[in-house]
């Protein structure tokens, strides 16, 4: 058993243990409790629901790793979606060409990136607490979005947009493919790029990173900009899935993304964490909600159980680390 744990930790990293145990537990419990759980239908529903929450979690991830947080992600996604919708509507609406759609995507990415960059600049140059800056940014973006839409929906997009939310390619849902590409990009960014290295370093000690010659302000601005761009991708997927944009859509995901990240072993104080355990944690959360759905319960019970799962995982970490101190081993 001990050697198994050591091999597991060596291969996948110690932070993978929590999500994997949770994954196995969920598969076993629902596999036994609901006979139609282990089926393509479950896979399908998970595969289509995962990307929205997943992309927003990726947007939350980088700020969390720097020891910050980005509370404006959902409204940044809405606003980016609005930018895309505006471009589509002003260039033909349902008849807009593919070129216009490309332009719309660029508009969304620029909007998300700009919102993120503004947040990043405010945090980097005033050293205000990221919770406060992004919280007020959230309130501002929500207000701006509601002002622009007057609280209503924006809809009426070309037909070819829908497959981005609903279609499949090689038997895999397109949104899932987009999400997996983003996970891969984030993984490479964190493990191999200078920015990834730097953002982890400033996560555990900003000043020490500064003294070692890392450009901490630039890193913070880039982190929030990338977070905003990821929000924009989520916004485009949401636009395609619902064939409309409404400010407030996905709002309930905000705190779930934080939960998914912590469940995936992200250090709450920043500086440590990887993408893959978070990916597994996201799958666990979706499986939990799909499983409950199959058994006739609604999303709200799943939300409550997500919270319980989080507490169980965090408490288990506390107990394990206490046990290790007790037996004199270094964590």
């Amino acid at each position: 058993m001990k050697t198994f744990i050591q091999t597991f930790n060596a291969r996948f990293g110690a932070d993978m243990a929590g999500p994997v145990v949770a994954f196995i537990a969920v598969m076993v419990i629902f596999g036994l409790a609901a006979d139609n759980f282990l089926s393509m239908a479950t896979f399908g529903s998970v595969a289509f629901q995962l990307p929205e929450l997943g992309l927003l979690t990726l947007a939350m991830l980088l700020p969390l790793l720097t020891g910050g947080i980005n509370l404006s992600i959902t409204f940044a996604a809405n606003l980016s979606g609005l930018a895309a919708a505006w471009v589509l509507q002003s260039h033909g609406g349902v008849d807009a060409s593919a070129g216009v759609f490309a332009l719309a995507c660029v508009a969304a990415l620029v909007t998300g990136g700009a919102a993120g960059a503004l947040t990043g600049v405010a945090i980097a140059y005033t050293r205000a607490h990221p919770i406060l800056v992004t919280l007020s940014m959230m309130i501002f973006l929500r207000g701006l979005g509601e002002f622009l839409t007057r609280g209503g929906d924006v809809s009426g997009f070309p037909d070819y947009v829908a497959p981005i939310g609903h279609g499949s390619l090689f038997g895999l849902p397109i949104p899932l493919l987009i999400f997996i590409v983003c996970v891969a990009v984030w993984h490479v960014l964190l493990t191999r790029s200078k920015l990834g290295f730097g953002l982890l370093m400033i996560g555990s000690n900003m000043e020490a990173a500064d003294y070692s010659g890392l450009n901490t302000r630039k890193i913070v601005v880039l982190v929030y900009t990338l977070s905003g761009i990821m929000c924009a991708i989520a916004g485009i997927i949401m636009l395609a899935r619902f064939n409309s944009v409404r400010v407030g859509h996905g709002e309930s995901y905000l705190l779930i993304t934080v939960l998914a990240a912590f469940l995936g072993g992200i250090n709450p104080f920043g500086g440590f964490g990887r993408v893959l355990p978070v990916f597994v944690a996201l799958i666990v959360l979706q499986l939990l909600s799909s499983g409950l759905n199959l058994m006739g319960a609604n999303q709200h019970l799943a939300t409550a159980l997500w919270g319980v799962l989080m507490i169980v995982v965090m408490a288990a970490r506390t107990i394990v680390s206490k046990f290790r101190i007790f037996t004199g081993k270094k964590v």
């Binding site: 290295f197 370093m201 555990s204 000690n205 000043e207 020490a208 990173a209 003294y211 070692s212 010659g213």
Partner: peptide, 21 residues
């Protein structure tokens, strides 16, 4: 403790922090 080294991070990461290029 607070400026010279990034105490929670690994020995390897601290060592290469200034010479990433």
């Amino acid at each position: 403790l607070s400026l010279g080294l990034n105490q929670p991070q690994s020995i390897a990461d601290n060592l290469v922090m200034a010479s990433l290029d």
